[in-house]
Design a protein around this nucleic acid. Sequence first.
DNA 1: TCTGGGGTCCTAGGACCC
DNA 2: TCTGGGGTCCTAGGACCC
Length: 432
Amino acid sequence: MHQCDPQPAINREHVFALVDGNSFYCSCERVFHPSLIGQPVIVLSNNDGCAISRTDEAKALGIKMGDPLHLIKHIVARHRVRVFSSNYALYGDMSARMMHTLAQFTPHMQVYSIDEAFVSLDGFARDGLTEYARTIRAVVRRDTGIPTCVGIAPTKVLAKVANRVAKRRTGSGGVLNMCDAATQDEILDSLPVEDVWGIGARSAATLGTHGVRTAKQLRDHDLDHTQRLLTIVGRRIAMELRGQSCLPLQMIQEARKQIISSKSFGRPVRELDEMLEAVANYVTRAAEKLRGQHSLCHHVTVFVQTNRFQNVPQYYNSGAATLATGTASTVRIIQAAHQVLRGIFRAGFKYTKAGVMLADIRPASAPQFSLFDDQQAHARDATLARTVDAINTRMGRDTLKVATCGTTQAWGMNAKMRTPCYTTRWQDLLRV
DNA sequence: TCTGGGGTCCTAGGACCC
DNA sequence: TCTGGGGTCCTAGGACCC
């Protein structure tokens, strides 16, 4: 019996609302630059590489998600597209405000990503759902300045569909209620199957060879066959399209099972010394996150790579080390990562990217020491890290750091069009 | 010159054990 | 020619998401 098989004995009706910020990063920029309203705006990925957020006006100019900036320069110039480097401190803070506002409506919500949340509307009167969603939208707009759309449906997958259609249909007022069967039929029939949440290009191609091209066709396809094609994941999606909820609201944010810090360099790196410095910085970020969720890691992976888009000598390598005792100590993890790096680094290449992954993550509350461990040393590590974190929280990131992180970071990333951190740094507060 | 970063889940297959 | 069977654990790779 599959865990998502229908359970007629219970047959509880759910209602999910998916609230999703429109062009979220661009909208954050607009909050602090009202002159951007009505203008084409894009926000770039790290190193000012690709467009990762676009307003409707920018989309209308043909700018696609992930388009490299240097390939759309002509559009940007001709139509005076306003371009911003990404400012994650600002977006993270705006996200927190949006989620805080949503939480005032119900404690039953799941923060799904930086710009969207599932909200449970179980138990609300069916005929008041759309109006209630309009209220939620209006309050988020009023209290944060962020425009949103809301999709309402009996399952998460359908709520995703409803949200997507609400964004596209002007006249929907930003809200679409897909609770009734007739609306579901109509919308799923006109939705390409690859636009369903969880169906990517590969799955869509597989389904296409069996004549399944729309969301409605996937919904009505034989479930066992769908599972043979797309594993249990596909079966769940198909069931959700039928209105049978298999993806529950996850209100608790579980601790991360892996933590990655990887970035392209602002310019190519050739020397081991610079690479050691970069890796030390990446470990510093990852270890901060690790301590932030009160975990220890037992495994660290390091990788280095050259520019895969250029016709130059290519090199990629990765290596890993196991930490006999779990640790969240920046110093200890840097030591391990540096040892791995020395093993995989080859001189003579122009490296453009490196990264660090922490894995085999376990709670710090129950550390397991090996027989020969110096437990007092680990306790000292923990105390040191706590002190450093406290100072950096108060005085700013990297006020205190490990010496191998260097001071110049000449390899660091570019962000030439970054707006100030209006909400998270005193010196960047708006003056009125 | 210039092409993101950080996650999750599932499955298959190998190693190992009894 | 025939070469056990069943279980667990781990890892790599695929697919997808925002």
